[in-house]
Each structure stands twice: as structure tokens, then as C-alpha cells.
Design a protein around this nucleic acid. Structure first.
Length: 579
RNA sequence: CGGCGUGUGGCUCAGUUUGGCAGAGCGCUGCGUUCGGGACGCAGAAGCCGCAGGUUCAAAUCCUGUCACGCCGACCA
């Protein structure tokens, strides 16, 4: 391939709407083009990257006995009605009518299609276990696409579904899949991907893991223990708090004019924020009934945790003067009967608290929840803090990091086989529901994440296993006959050896040629120029600048081949070293 | 869905306050000089100023409406 013919323009200026580097570089490098909100086309350079990622995935899926299939993008609503998700899933699911007026959906995930495909085939226990997977486009009408290809509405995903005749068999295969996923991310050149335990969300099921690529621009917060290796997402991380009891005091109602925030109250009463009780107010979506979460003043509420405990959807409350609650002065003592409240574990064991009095302009001092409330029970509804206590090893060593979710694996159980009535006959002639697992990887998101994790200010630094081309050959001064001849012949010889080369023989200035090469991001760069040729050599470098050598022209091809193998070997060593 | 912001050549943006010929740099086309980190000269092409209505002799600029997009939050297998 010649740069001169490569479809997709590279340019100098950072597009205004790009917030993260990978987005800006992939647009500037001619990898992708914006089409609409959360919708992008891939230029040839990116398509080559995603195709390589797909092939890495395909190989690993095949190696664990996966069989590739292809489900439709458009599915009849009836299939989603069977599982109940036609009703239960929100607006992310695009619903539409065809010309005859019957309801359809755009596939945003394919559990229904998977069950539909195999429920006649797999009626006998002898067919189990098996796994099917596809690599295909999905559409999810996300509320807020962002960060380029990291969070889009239409995207390519590898989704896999396994079917088993017992939980034990699923457990076994889940572990196999867990390892296959680790190999995929190692081979894609991102050893920084880690696994965390997670909450399974709308997919249902119990055990699940997310594969997170750690980066400060990630959308998800991850809790990591540096001491024992505990890893979890924020919702699944138990918050443990050990309070110094302090000395109990008498309960006192004090006038606190214009003290509506915890900071105001603590400053006014000269008390510590760690002995204050903060109220965060929500309302139930169903009937607008108030739900108040009380946490220690220095903690934040985790809404997902609270939602799970309340057991229904909630939203941030709007409090007006007519309501039973007095904004700014809400406390658990003398709490109005019309609302309900939850006490967070961070309040447990404090002998003397400052809290609102449920009366305009007043707070309580010396509140002791165990003593003053009829029954005080505590729940875990606060976000874990940096330096918090690890629920696993009990050391105060929790760190909070950001990450991008590039894959996930779930144990689905019988949620879909039951709702869609997929059964098999076991060796005793008895009918049973198969147990399912499902396994996803976002291909485009992984490509963008790799760019985010591996780039410098000039462009992506692609790992060789997924780079659009392995070698970029730059011919400075293509008008110089000798130089052009040398570069041409090297290009031909490398291509004959099966090496992927992108060849730049345009008559542009060196600066532009180097900038373009940086933006394309091929791991090996070869520079032919009159200057190098004076020493009968070409310059060979790596994109990450770890290698930079003048190599005699006649030895260049051999050197490049060796370097290429060395770079691949480095990736393989990640796979082997991974435990 | 809430808050904030932005729509002017392919890209980055000025011009809007105070209404008066549609602008710059990059990119693109041609010619020439250059050539190891986005050079320079000359000559060009390219815009219904998001859309619709209104005010005005005159609207990119003022008014009303609307659409789109972005950021923060909510939400999210």
C-alpha cells in the first residue's frame, strides 16, 4: 500500500470536539470519520486494526471450541417479548415497525437470538456443552455517546453464548473463557487490562467479571487493593468504616441559622465533619415518595447501591416548601413519617453526631443513633474512598482508579432458557433448562482503548499484533533517482516476504512525511534518503523510539524481518508470562 | 431527562457587544523555488454564516421559534 493512495486524510489541527487523545489522534490520523452522534465510519487504516483484533478474538474463541455464527441485526419483537426484554429494556433498544406494521428491534445484544438459533438443535444432553459466537454490529441508542469510539451507539462486538447442562459445567467453562479473554488482551498488546468483579446489571445472573483497561480517561471507577490484589467496580465494592466512638454527649437541639451545608454546620458548631450526618434525598420513580440516605459527612452516596437496597428505581429529589422535608436541615431523629430513610455503615458507632433537626434553622448535637433511635440498622450505600479499608484483607489500602470496560463475562444461569422455554432431555429422560454463560468484547472500543493507552503527542503507537501496517517505509526525496530505486526495491522485497508495508513515496517534505508516519503509527519505520544512502544505509527505527539504527541497504530486509519477529515475540512473552 | 455551551469553506477559528461588500490560517488545484520534523513565492477553486419566520432601506450580527452538536450530570449488557 502506498500512502499516496491511502483513502483517509491526515491533518494537523486537533478537532474541536475531541476530548480525549485517542479520539483526536484517530480522527487526525485518517482512521475514522464522524457520521452522526455516536456513529462513525472506519477508514482503511482503522479497518485493518479492527480486522486484526477480530482475528485475534476469533482464534481464541475457536481454541476453546467456540463456533462462529451470525445473527441478524434486525430481530422481530416477538423474540424479545419471549424473554420479557421488549418491555423491560429502556430506550437504548431501538424499536420500529416494518412496512406491514409489525414490531421489530435493532439487536443490541443477542441472548434471544442465540437461544432461538439452538433451541431445536440442542434438545438432547448429548449435544452439550457448546459455545457459539459472532462478531457483528450492534446498535444501542445510548443516552450520551462520548469519547470517540469508546462510547458509541453503533459498534462491532464479539458476543459469545455458552450452553451447559449443569452449573458445575458452566463454572468450568467460565474459567476457560476467563483465561481465553486474558490471552486475547495480551495478544492485542495491552497487558494493562485487568479483571474486576462486577455487578451483573440488566443481563441477570450472578457471577460476572469486567475486563478494564486502566487509564485516567476511563469512564468507570475501579477499586483496587494494593496489598491483597482485591479488585472490584464501585457498585460491588463493600465500604467498611471503623469509627472512633468518641464520648457520648447529651442530645441538644441548637439554632444554626443559614447553615445548610455540612461545611457550614461543622464550621458553626466547631465540630469535625467525621462526626456529622449528611442527608442525600432521592424520590422513588414509582410514587415520588422520598428516600433519604444518611451518610457520614465526608462520604458520598453510591446510587447503584442505594437503588439495590430500596429495590426500585429512584431519582434525585426536588424538595419544595410544602414537602415534609426541610432542605438543609434533614436528620434521622424526629424524621417525618411520610418519608423513609437508610443509615449508612459509616455512621455506625459514633457516640455523638451532629445532624439536622428536621426544622428550619436547627441541628442536633450529641445524637447517638443506637441510644436515640428506636431501632438503628445500617446498610452499605456509600462510595468507597481512596485509602478505605479493603473488604478482603482489612488493610486501609484501597485505591480508586479509572478504567475503560473492554470486555465482560457473565454467568447467565437459566434466565433466558427458562423465559424462552429452551429445554433438553437428560440421560434419565427428564427435561431440564440449559445453563448459559455470555461473553462480550467491544472491538472498536478495544481499538480506541489501545490507542488511548499507547500513544504519544504525535500519534498512536500500535502494538505490532494489531497495527494497521507492520512497517512504514519513508522515501525522503523520491525525486532522487538512487534513493527512489533503493526504496522501491526494499518495498518489493519486504512485500514478497509477506511483511505488511505502507510505502510513502510522495514528493512531500520530510516533516510532513514523518508527521504522517507518526499518525499512522506503524511500529517499524524505515527511512531511505540521499543522506543515508551516502553511507549505503537506510535508517530503521521503532515507533516507540527504542530502536534507532543505520543498517546497510543489503542487510535491511533481513534486519526488518528480525525486528518484526522480535516485536511479535515480546507480545507472545506477555501471553506466556500472564498468570 | 436536567445544567452549561457551540453552530461562519474540508479543518481550526475571527467577525455578532455597536446591523452596512463574507474574512484569516491550515488543507485543496496549477506553476516555480525548496527538501531530515508539517517551508516559501505567484495564481486559483471553494461558504444560502444550522434551519424557519420576524424587525429593518439593509441581518452572520437584533427578535421569536426550531434543529443539530459538544461538555458536565442522570442513565447505561
Amino acid at each position: 500500500m502506498k500512502v499516496a493512495n491511502l483513502v483517509g486524510q491526515r491533518f494537523k489541527e486537533r478537532p474541536a470536539d475531541c476530548v480525549i487523545d485517542s479520539h483526536a489522534l484517530m480522527v487526525r490520523g485518517g482512521f475514522m470519520k464522524y457520521v452522526g452522534n455516536g456513529i462513525y465510519s472506519e477508514f482503511p487504516a482503522l479497518r485493518r486494526v479492527t480486522a486484526k483484533i477480530e482475528n485475534i478474538i476469533r482464534k481464541e474463541m475457536d481454541a476453546i471450541d467456540g463456533q462462529e455464527v451470525l445473527f441478524p441485526v434486525v430481530l422481530p419483537a416477538s423474540l424479545w417479548e419471549e424473554s420479557g426484554r421488549y418491555e423491560s429494556v429502556g430506550n437504548e433498544l431501538v424499536r420500529f415497525k416494518d412496512r406491514s406494521g409489525s414490531n421489530h428491534v435493532l439487536g443490541m445484544t443477542h441472548e434471544e437470538a442465540a437461544v432461538h438459533l439452538v433451541r431445536e438443535y440442542a434438545q438432547s444432553y448429548t449435544k452439550y456443552p457448546f459455545m457459539i459466537y459472532q462478531i457483528q454490529r450492534k446498535f444501542r441508542d445510548e443516552a450520551r455517546p462520548r469519547a470517540g469510539m469508546i462510547r458509541v451507539r453503533e459498534f462491532t462486538m464479539k458476543d459469545a453464548y455458552s450452553f451447559h447442562t449443569s452449573q458445575e459445567d458452566l463454572d468450568k467453562y467460565y474459567e476457560v473463557c476467563f483465561q481465553a479473554y486474558n490471552r486475547i488482551f495480551q495478544k492485542a498488546g495491552v497487558p494493562e487490562v485487568i479483571t474486576v468483579q462486577s455487578d451483573s446489571g440488566m443481563m441477570g445472573g450472578s457471577v460476572s467479571h469486567e475486563y478494564m483497561l486502566l487509564t485516567p480517561v476511563g469512564e468507570d471507577s475501579i477499586v483496587i487493593c494494593d496489598e491483597c490484589g482485591y479488585r472490584s467496580n464501585m457498585e460491588a465494592a463493600e465500604n467498611q468504616v471503623i469509627n472512633n466512638a468518641g464520648t457520648a454527649e447529651e442530645l441538644e437541639c441548637i439554632e444554626t441559622p443559614d447553615c445548610k451545608t455540612i461545611e457550614d454546620v461543622c464550621a458553626f458548631l466547631e465540630s469535625d465533619v467525621e462526626t456529622s450526618c449528611k442527608a442525600v434525598v432521592y424520590q422513588k420513580n414509582s410514587d415520588d415518595k422520598f428516600v433519604v440516605a444518611f451518610v457520614r459527612g465526608d462520604y458520598e452516596v453510591n446510587e447503584t447501591k442505594l437503588r439495590n437496597i430500596v429495590g426500585e428505581e429512584i431519582h434525585t429529589a426536588v424538595i419544595t416548601d410544602e414537602d415534609c422535608l426541610t432542605a438543609g436541615y434533614i436528620g434521622p431523629y424526629n424524621f417525618p413519617e411520610e418519608a423513609e430513610f437508610y443509615l449508612d455503615v459509616s455512621l455506625k458507632g459514633i457516640a455523638s453526631l451532629v445532624a439536622g433537626a428536621n426544622k428550619e434553622g436547627y441541628h442536633y448535637k450529641g445524637l447517638n443513633l443506637e441510644r436515640d433511635l428506636e431501632s438503628a440498622s445500617y446498610v452499605d450505600i456509600a462510595k468507597v474512598k481512596e485509602g478505605g479499608i479493603c473488604p478482603c484483607c482489612q488493610k486501609p489500602s484501597l485505591a480508586i482508579k479509572r478504567g475503560i470496560e473492554v470486555g465482560n463475562i457473565f454467568q447467565l444461569g437459566t434466565k433466558y432458557t427458562k423465559s424462552m422455554d429452551m429445554q433438553y432431555t437428560d440421560e434419565n429422560g427428564k427435561n431440564n433448562y440449559p445453563v448459559m454463560g455470555c461473553y462480550g468484547i467491544g472491538v472498536g472500543r478495544l481499538a480506541a482503548s489501545i490507542c488511548e493507552a499507547h500513544h504519544d503527542e504525535y500519534g498512536p503507537v500500535w502494538p505490532i499484533s494489531i497495527a494497521p501496517w507492520e512497517v512504514q517505509l519513508c522515501c525522503l526525496r523520491a525525486d532522487d533517482e538512487e534513493t527512489k530505486k533503493t526504496a522501491d526495491s526494499l518495498y518489493n522485497s519486504l512485500q514478497n516476504d509477506g511483511i505488511e508495508v505502507i510505502y510513502d513515496d510522495r514528493s512531500v517534505r520530510p516533516g510532513e512525511m514523518f508527521s504522517d508516519a507518526d499518525l499512522i503509527g506503524a511500529p517499524i519505520r524505515v527511512i531511505a534518503s540521499p543522506r543515508n544512502l551516502k553511507e549505503s544505509a537506510v535508517e530503521i527505527t521503532t515507533r516507540d523510539k527504542s530502536v534507532k539504527e543505520l543498517v546497510p541497504v543489503e542487510k535491511a530486509a533481513e534486519f526488518i524481518k528480525d525486528l518484526r519477529l522480535k516485536l511479535f515475540a515480546e507480545i507472545d512473552s506477555h501471553v506466556e508470562n500472564y498468570k
